[in-house]
Write a protein that binds this DNA or RNA. Structure first.
Lengths: 225, 225
DNA sequence: GGAAAAGTGGACCGTCAAGTCCACTCGTCG
DNA sequence: CGACGAGTGGACTTGACGGTCCACTTTTCC
């Protein structure tokens, strides 16, 4: 079965997943039938069920995983190197650009809400994605704290959660309205808020200024923006 | 037709909308058939099509409008009186409580993503809701600025957009993961950021003063993993 | 080179849900 | 009171979609 796939088999399976993903993005999950997938990928029902014996459910899960992987990939390498304000800006631009290009599609939101209670498999995929995503953002904040560019008085995990929420909400609103302004606002305001955390070394100049970080903690109010 | 509805007729129509809304919330739009709606509301197909000649589509639109109206209603009167920090906190608590109670349901996200490209009718409902929502938040910020509790140097509209995005994202993540922490973090951080806008009069609203607001310090359960 | 396994094609079936139709009841107004 | 239209019930039609089956081709490996 799945254990013994020839090169051709893998290619076919991959073609099905990619094609299905595209259809889901274009026409929604509910609006896409297995026949549609077959037609779009030049395959037949038997092949589809050959690679996904559990049918639609399994295909959906595979596509979800595929899309989830792409989400973080598309933000690399920026997301893994949030060690300077310039990097944060680059990441922000990357995200905005990605979703702008994607337009009315984000498979994440689609899949997320397509599954109410149930489908623990999908739940897992989405939870895993959010978790990794937030982790990377939090790591970025912590690294900035370590280098003194963000004050140490704030809870990196909580900040990351808020930032991720803003990002997700921005995408959601974009999907609903077609406007990307909310996504931009959420990211910009979120990052700006990080810059205002008191206790940071002086903005910009800092450079690779040693590791200090939490020496003073004398919550001097972070000046104006 | 719809122009001449007797009291009984209106009641039936209302019963259908309310019942359908509940089913959609419980089982999702895709997981609910018109037969389900009929059964749940003790009506028959003919009645359903009597009141919604365009069938499923029209019913969906009616339910969407119904739900959209409820969303803002549920936040009143807090949402219309964001004139003190205490009011902001009350609103925040209201929102969190509402979604906590709702659990895995928010019909908004469901409907939003259920409709990919197409259904301009629904699009309109959602856009209208977001627009009114953001407007009210922005009004709150402006009134705080007018009374000197928030500095005038920030763009109220943009802040409101970011806050709404955070809220929406928090809800989305809650739907996906069951965790409400992101929603809380997004609201708390968003409001805290407002408190840090420079140029405000000293915080005297009654709570514990402090420039940092409830930023990231207090007993906030750990973020991240 | 040939046999077994993997891959492929498409007809076929059962189910289920959207939407139609018509017969019937009930309330209201002349 | 009686008739007309609003309101109601539920059987029926239609079609799409998920899933099955089997005959056939290609690849792989001895």
């Amino acid at each position: 079965m799945a254990t013994t796939l020839t090169r051709k088999g893998r290619a076919t399976r991959q073609r099905i997943v990619a094609g299905a993903a595209e259809l889901f993005r274009e026409r929604g999950v509910a609006g896409t039938s297995l026949d549609d997938v077959c037609e779009a990928t030049s395959t037949s029902k038997s092949q589809l069920f050959h690679y996904f014996p559990d049918g639609r459910t399994q295909l959906l899960a595979a596509v979800a995983q595929h899309e989830a992987d792409r989400v973080l990939e598309d933000q690399q390498p920026a997301l893994d190197q949030l060690t300077s304000w310039a990097a944060w800006q680059a990441w922000r631009d990357r995200v905005v650009e990605r979703y702008r290009a994607q337009g009315q599609s984000c498979p994440l939101a689609v899949l997320t809400s397509q599954l109410g209670p149930g489908s623990p498999e999908h739940q897992e995929v989405v939870v895993g994605l959010f978790s990794r995503w937030e982790q990377k953002i939090a790591d970025g904040i912590r690294s900035m704290q370590a280098s003194g560019q963000i004050g140490s008085s704030t809870d990196a995990g909580r900040r990351a959660a808020a930032l991720l929420a803003g990002l997700q909400g921005g995408v959601l609103i974009m999907l609903a309205t077609g406007e990307i302004a909310h996504l931009e606002a959420a990211l910009d305001e979120g990052i700006a808020a990080l810059r205002r955390v008191p206790g940071a070394a002086q903005d910009g100049a800092g450079g690779p200024a040693g590791l200090d970080g939490r020496g003073g903690s004398a919550a001097l109010d972070g000046g104006g923006a």
